[in-house]
Design a protein around this nucleic acid. Sequence first.
DNA 1: CTGAAAGCGCTTACAG
DNA 2: CTGAAAGCGCTTACAG
Lengths: 333, 333
Amino acid sequence: VAELSRPTRLIDVAERAGVSIATASRSLAGAPGVSPSLAEQVRRVADAMGYVANAHARSLAGGHETSVGLIVGEIDDPYFSEIASGAIAAAAETGRLVQVCHAGDPVELLAQIRLLRASNVGAMVLAGSGLVEPSLESASNAELDAFMKSGGRVAVVGRHGLDAPAVLPENVAGGRAIAQHLIELGHRRIAVIAGPAALTTVADRLEGMLDVFGPAVVSLSHHSFNRQGGAEGARLALADHPEVTAIVALSDVMAIGALAALRELGVQVPREASVSGFDDIAVAADVAPSLTTVRLDMAAIGAEAIRLTGGDTPTSIGTGHELKVRESTARRR
Amino acid sequence: VAELSRPTRLIDVAERAGVSIATASRSLAGAPGVSPSLAEQVRRVADAMGYVANAHARSLAGGHETSVGLIVGEIDDPYFSEIASGAIAAAAETGRLVQVCHAGDPVELLAQIRLLRASNVGAMVLAGSGLVEPSLESASNAELDAFMKSGGRVAVVGRHGLDAPAVLPENVAGGRAIAQHLIELGHRRIAVIAGPAALTTVADRLEGMLDVFGPAVVSLSHHSFNRQGGAEGARLALADHPEVTAIVALSDVMAIGALAALRELGVQVPREASVSGFDDIAVAADVAPSLTTVRLDMAAIGAEAIRLTGGDTPTSIGTGHELKVRESTARRR
DNA sequence: CTGAAAGCGCTTACAG
DNA sequence: CTGAAAGCGCTTACAG
């Protein structure tokens, strides 16, 4: 097939097909103004030559973008890798490629948005959480606004201070559901282990929980949104409040860290303390004990976000949630 | 900062700095032939304007590539997401962006390589396994060869039939290590649950294991390289060979599936049967029971692969392995 | 050391 | 319906 030392160009296809590059371009784009039979023939030639348009030239010339940028906190985190998986699959459906970037703070975020913009992606998806304090987002939002004004499409996951279509995970309702579950099990001395207070995701989940828990929360602390943070939170909570009967983590990954800490401390779950998570990452059902959590379906969230960058539905959509009761929570003894 | 509705261009910077675009280009590239003070001034202006070069124009004009393609099986799989995480971080060190693609079979692989090539990435990393049967790789290898001939850099993870620098996970040695461990624990009736026989990764891990196990293997079956495949394998193995005392999965994800199946069947691990995995994904320590496995350090593998696309070390490198003994394996009773 | 100009591979008005 | 030509934003020989 490809014996050439450089990719086949449009002009190669045009020559072989005996047409101008303008006609070749139109034929391959399916643009009007070419006789159907000629277009078909050009397409056949292009196929046979394994031709794929140079994305840079196409982009520079003002054609359609084939690449979309996806900004996550850490692809390593199952929450984000499941979103990315859904996004990559959805993008592939329309022949688009996904550029994945890490951005853990506002400075990195701004840098990545600029890089993505310079890379001339057609769209960007912000999968990371929005920030509670708007001023911290202002620089990156200005850059995104400029991107959108120049025709770029943006979609966000969660509550951002940005006028862009959004996929809204049901964080408040999910928080309420998990809290309800624990209250029904009789728990009244509860420790909440939260992620960074700066994130809207954390604020929303917390809001739903505190709504239901009310005074049952005896301890609330903020930690990194990872395994380590969860372990730390669990140790601190139990040290300061040994009377706690349930530990509520704001993500599954944190809950898994909490579970590990409790194991080390010799605290039996759920006999001596219930533990719950949030997200329902794939492995939540396989840890010990299996984790009671709120399912968000991150793959669907990622796929929807990609679709929002394609269509002309500038609205926001939710994606549901579902309480998953497993072994890590039990009636208070 | 950016009030414009379109990104700042080189010509904007040049005008503001009072120089030609040629001089501006050289200044920003750090190319020789510009007086240091002028270059410094241009850089200051560019910074102040938040200028980032249009990657497409740069690429078309023959400048350096800033994007690298990473082809994985499924980003959702922790094995690959950990590789991707290391790769993205390493690429960011040199200001490069990573395009992540899914390719589950030779046809998809060929399509993704072409798309990546058309997208004019400067380098590609094949993170998925090579294939035992060379003819199945020939089409994609031809495309990769053409890419390399035209100056593209390629690095692969694992044993591929391709003349490119490679990061070689120690699959054979790792297989031997885990097998040794089980033999030392006294197991002599062992079921091996492997991934697809078509993959060199599977062939290599198997080779190391069978070397040591010899006739102790009473059952060997191939399944999908995922949780489902592991569960299926465990059920089949126990149904056909109830005398088995150890189940060896060829990846942690498969082992987690096996653990789930055994739980459903009421088989106690490790009391009634030992179970081992391979890879040491992050969650291996947190499942129930925690998983004995071989640690490969995928993040390091991903980072090394990216580095191989940058340097001029066209060699192959290994990245070590380490037996991690946890709760899922025990002495035969 | 600096600049004018060609060219990368496309797409899209503009002519015919 | 088809083609010649301009132009996207850069980089890099080629002049000076």
